[in-house]
């Protein structure tokens, strides 16, 4: 599935729409940025509540294909600007990390 397919999911809001539409190959749910940096797989959707600019740096350095902010946390403008500069899709949902992971996991395995 593509990043643009994530954007069409029910209850998912696209916060930063100017992005490179990459394939979503996996998911990675974590709020520890060092952990994301070390273990997030290339092409994953990062599922996190860390709504700040450094999350974008980490996602980009780790090669993530997108970032999903959970629990409808407020997203500061500098984070949106950083995501735009990296052409990284930034989404937001009211779901928590577990619920979002289950949803994405189901979609990824259905398409295998």
């Amino acid at each position: 599935m593509k990043a643009s397919d994530v954007a069409t999911l029910d209850g998912v809001e696209t916060v930063q729409p100017d992005y490179e539409n990459r394939d979503i190959l996996a998911g990675y749910a974590s709020d520890l940025l060092s952990d994301v940096m070390a273990h997030a797989p290339e092409g994953c959707l990062l599922i996190t509540i860390q709504a700040h600019g450094n999350t974008v740096s980490v996602a980009s350095l780790a090669g993530a294909a997108g970032v999903m902010i959970c629990n409808r946390r407020p997203i500061p403008d500098d984070m949106i600007a950083a995501a735009r500069a990296e052409r990284l899709p930034l989404f937001r949902t009211a779901r928590n990390q577990f619920e979002m992971s289950c949803l994405l996991g189901g979609l990824l395995s259905a398409r295998e």
């Binding site: 520890l32 060092s34 070390a38 700040h52 450094n54």
Partner: peptide, 15 residues
């Protein structure tokens, strides 16, 4: 709370 300070930094670098 910002997602840092997991105690993984220097060990990650060394690895």
């Amino acid at each position: 709370s910002l997602g840092f300070g997991a105690g993984l930094g220097l060990p990650n670098v060394k690895r």
